[in-house]
Simulated assay, not measured.
Amino acid sequence: MNFDLSGKRALVTGSTKGIGHGAAAALLECGAEVIVTGRAQDDVDSAVQRLGAGATGIAADLTRPEDCDRLAREAGRVDILVNNAGKFGGQDFFDTNDADWDGYWSTNVMSGVRLSRALIPAMAERGWGRVIFLSSESAINIPPDMIHYGVTKTAYLALSRGLAKRMAGTGVTVNAVLPGPTLSDGMTSGLDPAEGQTIEDAAADFVKANRPSSVIRRAASVEEVANMIAYVASPLSSATSGASLRVDGGVVDTI
């Protein structure tokens, strides 16, 4: 199987590190041109340098409608849109005020809404496009210490399913990818390995203690999640739309 993306242009939001950066690298490997985004110009420049030929970057604060509009204009033709920009953090429901909710909603939901609204019509005119929303197993398995985060990720499931139906028959597919615990920068920064313990083993201990329903009994790698994104972005996924594709290691206990 060949995920050939030669001649395609991809925009991956929140791609200076973590899953977004892994997705950008995977799409580049498949032959796509990739536009990297992040809030800080220095971070964008560093990510582009690490990715190498075929990568360009645009700095934008996607909580701001005007930055979303500017990004869509400067990006030009986009065949693959990966809505990955987001943030997470533990906070008790009763300590989460309106400003906190607004911050999560604008980053985790409205960035994807605005960019999809701006970029999908041109995909439909060309008769081909891929739109991918990075949700989470937390969309289904709502964490009690991150209810605000879980709600935003559930919203992405509704958004992706509704958009898939809206774009029916146009050649544009819309899907959600649901990672579980993943060895991204965010996860590794919160781990405290014991002396002599690898970060992978520390992550596995975290998964066993906090996500005991995991089938693989470890955290996924960024590359494993990126592999799913690359497939969904490829022409080979043409019969997959409106789907919620789990890369959660079996954490969500459902068939």
Rank of each mutant, 00 (worst) to 15 (best):
G22M: 06
G54M: 07
D205C: 10
D98M: 13
E223P: 02
A204Q: 10
N141G: 02
W101A: 07
L134Q: 03
E137S: 08
G18H: 09
G31S: 07
A72P: 06
T254L: 08
L236F: 12
S241P: 06
S237Q: 07
V113R: 02
L157M: 14
A40N: 14
M187H: 08
R217S: 12
G86D: 01
P179V: 00
D43P: 01
A230Y: 03
G249E: 04
S6W: 01
N175W: 07
S241Y: 04
D45G: 11
A124K: 06
Q41V: 11
R64Y: 00
R126K: 15
R70A: 15
I199C: 00
E200F: 06
V247C: 03
S116G: 15
L183E: 14
Y104F: 15
I199M: 14
A85C: 03
L119G: 02
Y156K: 11
F206R: 04
S111Q: 01
D192Y: 10
A24K: 05
W101P: 10
A26I: 05
H148S: 02
G250Q: 13
A226F: 05
T16R: 11
D102T: 13
T173L: 08
L119V: 03
M123Y: 09
P212L: 09
A23W: 00
K8Q: 14
A10G: 11
T56E: 14
S138I: 01
V44F: 03
I80H: 03
V151M: 11
M187N: 05
A32V: 09
G7L: 05
N83M: 10
G186S: 13
D98R: 15
I142Q: 00
V82P: 07
A60E: 06
E29V: 00
S213L: 12
I132C: 01
N210L: 06
K87I: 14
T182C: 13
V225K: 07
H21F: 15
A239R: 11
T96A: 12
D201K: 07
Y156W: 05
V222W: 00
P193G: 12
R246F: 15
A176C: 09
F206I: 00
E200T: 04
A72I: 05
A32K: 06
I132W: 03
D92C: 00
S241E: 04
W105T: 11
G150K: 13
I35Y: 08
V252E: 01
A26T: 03
M167R: 06
G129I: 02
A230S: 14
G38I: 06
A155R: 11
I142G: 00
A53E: 15
R77G: 03
G54R: 07
G249M: 05
